[in-house]
């Protein structure tokens, strides 16, 4: 059974079709890169997978329909790291990471999650934030904030990790670090990762599968080799993509 299956997905909002005919599947240990030019429908697809937007078609998580899952049930399977600042309130890093355990808590006073402390420690250690645990999130740098968001998502212990343009506005060293953390997590726990990526080089380097979207429709889906062919990329971006990438690479010789 595949962890995440999408069949004939379509999204209509305010009378406009934002996405249609999307089908793909993802098993554990796989990393899906969703790529495409601006307005292709990448963020729309992420919003559907995160349970924010309604859709038609079939989306199943672990064999269960996403539409029929309660927010808490969905959160147990799916972890999301998105962009944006955390809060205007001075929560500590540890408090924010700990919030990732919310779906596991039971009862009106939200106690009874025996694995909470261990999961928090693990997530802090995986993202290198153990030393910053008592710092206010308001004082973190951009890279530290993104790592904190990733730690919260990892603390969830989801089966599928959704990363929406995870390295946006990040310095190169943090980009590398973040990709490596996510990659290590995918391999060690054989869980699935879904990322929206602008950086096609990163998609080729880290992802195992790719879905190319253009104008709200899929152009291709499959392994990196099958889906990111020159023809498809050139159609999607309306330029010689591989040629440009090679030209950029040449600049480093």
């Amino acid at each position: 059974m595949q962890t995440l299956e999408v069949w004939n997905l379509a999204v209509r909002r305010n009378g406009k079709t934002l996405l249609r005919d999307v089908s793909f599947s993802l098993g554990s240990g796989e990393w899906l890169a969703i790529v495409g030019p601006n307005g292709a429908g990448k963020s729309t697809l992420m919003k559907v997978l995160a349970g924010e937007w309604t859709y038609t078609g079939v989306v199943t998580l672990d064999g269960r329909s996403l539409n029929e899952m309660k927010p808490r049930e969905r959160a147990l399977v799916m972890g999301l790291m998105d962009q944006g600042s955390f809060s205007q309130f001075a929560f500590t890093v540890e408090e924010v990471v700990r919030m990732g355990r919310y779906p596991y808590r039971k009862g009106i006073f939200h106690t009874g999650d025996p694995d909470e402390d261990a999961a928090v420690e693990q997530a802090l250690a995986d993202t290198g934030l153990t030393g910053l645990r008592h710092r206010s999130v308001l004082t973190l740098s951009g890279g530290e904030q993104q790592r904190c968001a990733l730690a919260q998502a990892l603390c969830h212990q989801p089966q599928v990790l959704l990363l929406d343009e995870p390295v946006n506005h990040l310095d190169l060293n943090y980009q590398k670090e973040l990709y490596q953390i996510a990659d290590g997590w995918r391999k060690s726990a054989s869980h699935a990762v879904v990322t929206v990526l602008h950086d096609l080089s990163a998609a080729r380097r880290f992802a195992t599968k790719a879905l190319v979207l253009s104008g709200g429709k899929p152009l291709s889906f499959g392994s990196i080799k099958e889906s990111l062919t020159d023809d498809i990329l050139n159609t999607a971006w309306n330029m010689d993509v591989a040629g440009w990438m090679r030209e950029m690479g040449e600049a480093w010789r």
Partner: peptide, 21 residues
């Protein structure tokens, strides 16, 4: 109290973390 902490991070984050917004 616990769900209000999630709201402080933003409504969509609260929803992702399993809150019934």
């Amino acid at each position: 109290a616990a769900v209000l902490d999630l709201f402080a991070l933003g409504e969509s984050r609260a929803a992702h973390l399993g809150a019934n917004v």
